[in-house]
Amino acid sequence: MIQKTKEQFVELFGKEPLIVVSPGRINLIGEHTDYNDGFVLPAAIDKKIVYAIALNGTNQCNAFAEFNQEKASFSLDAVVPTPGWINYLMGVVATLQQRGYSVAGFDCVVAGDIPVGAGLSSSAAVEGGLVAALDKLFGYGLSRMEMALIGQQAEHTFPGVMCGIMDQFANLHGKKDQVIRLDCRSLDYEYFPFAFPGYKVVLCNSMVHHSLASSEYNVRRQQCESGVKAIQRLHPEVKSLRDASKSMLEEVKEELPAKVYDRCLYVIDEISRVQTATGLLQQGKLNEFGKLMYETHEGLSKLYEVSCPELDFLVSLASEREEVAGARVMGGGFGGCTINLVEADKVEDYTSFIRSRYQERYKKDPEIYVTTIENGVTVL
């Protein structure tokens, strides 16, 4: 893919490009906790976006997207939100400009094999890859954390998705065979080895396309914030659901809409689960870790209501199989993938089983990806 992207760039623009590889991400546990100041446990994976990019000496940015064979351009004099994939590139450029960084015209080809809408954070990979490329081309000297924050701001202001920091952070800070426990409040982080050679991370795509820009994602965030406001009237020290306990939530249950209560209960439980989960990884207790994944799915489905019948069915199939340590919906929800921890020598049997049963129920073939944990954004 890297070679093809480079060749495509040379054919279109007639010069040698800089190459940047920007991975997708998985999150083992800790879903919808990042914008609640909680903890997450992500890792970068081998699905990726590839940029071929070079300066062009003009005030124009020209991009070619390999996935739909579409060209798009914009002027650096007027970088404003625009429908379509180019919006993500424009968001990065506008954020850099707003922060006082000079950006000159560039040409790029964007390719990749991260399935869009599968919950693997293709948008963060597009953002992280571009900010790293521009940092290299213009010598900004940005830290990886600064790059992640630029990507997050770009997503907030251009696509309008009020995402937490996890996706951009994992994209830029990933390490091979390591997961990262990130404190989304302090941005402190710690690496934990994912040292289970007898297991593979298997992603099962429901083929239900989701968009984090859908109104439901931002609604969940608003519901959590309204729960915090209610708790603050009795406990002013509570700044977010990270600070709240179940007993605090119970004190205000009667004044909360039932759905707001459910959202807050899920988040409080999930923040606690991530803390427990890292201890289990350190002790090599993958089956106990997997039970927490099933608990997370139950909460995401029943309390947070970001699952769908197809995802629930995939997780129920996983729970029938002894070779699966744990499974759950992954990402923002409303479609996309389940993440499954599967015994390595049973992966083929498991994927055949999933395909057969899913086709039988929904008349469509789920895409299945066996992934490895890899490094974050790499400038070649």
Rank of each mutant, 00 (worst) to 15 (best):
F9Q: 06
F158A: 10
N171V: 15
F196P: 02
V370H: 00
V267S: 03
L314N: 01
S301M: 01
Q3G: 07
L241C: 04
G30Q: 06
V50A: 11
Q60G: 03
K302P: 00
K302R: 04
V315F: 12
I114M: 10
E31P: 12
D183N: 15
R25S: 09
L187G: 02
L76M: 04
E190Q: 11
A148P: 13
T58N: 13
E374P: 01
L380P: 05
A258N: 01
L317T: 10
A125G: 07
P159R: 06
A104C: 09
H210V: 09
R181A: 11
Q178K: 12
V324M: 10
L28T: 09
V103T: 12
K239E: 05
G141Q: 12
L28Q: 08
E348S: 05
I114R: 06
V131C: 09
L241M: 02
S316G: 04
G91C: 04
A133H: 15
V179C: 04
E360G: 10
A118H: 02
V79A: 05
F64N: 09
G112C: 11
E367Y: 07
P115K: 00
D167W: 15
Q232K: 15
L265S: 13
L256K: 00
L317P: 07
F67N: 11
T278R: 12
D243V: 09
K175D: 08
E16C: 08
K175T: 07
D177R: 01
S123N: 07
G105I: 13
C224A: 09
V161R: 03
V219T: 08
F67R: 12
T278D: 11
R233E: 11
G30L: 15
L234M: 15
P257F: 02
C308P: 12
I271L: 13
K246D: 09
L55P: 02
V50L: 15
L241E: 03
Q69W: 01
N205P: 00
E7P: 11
C337A: 02
D312E: 14
G91E: 06
C224Q: 03
V80K: 13
D312Y: 00
I368F: 03
I231A: 13
L265M: 07
A111K: 03
L300M: 07
A344F: 08
L281K: 09
Q153H: 14
A133W: 10
V324Q: 08
A72C: 08
C204E: 04
N340A: 10
I354E: 04
I231D: 00
G24L: 07
E295Y: 14
I45E: 12
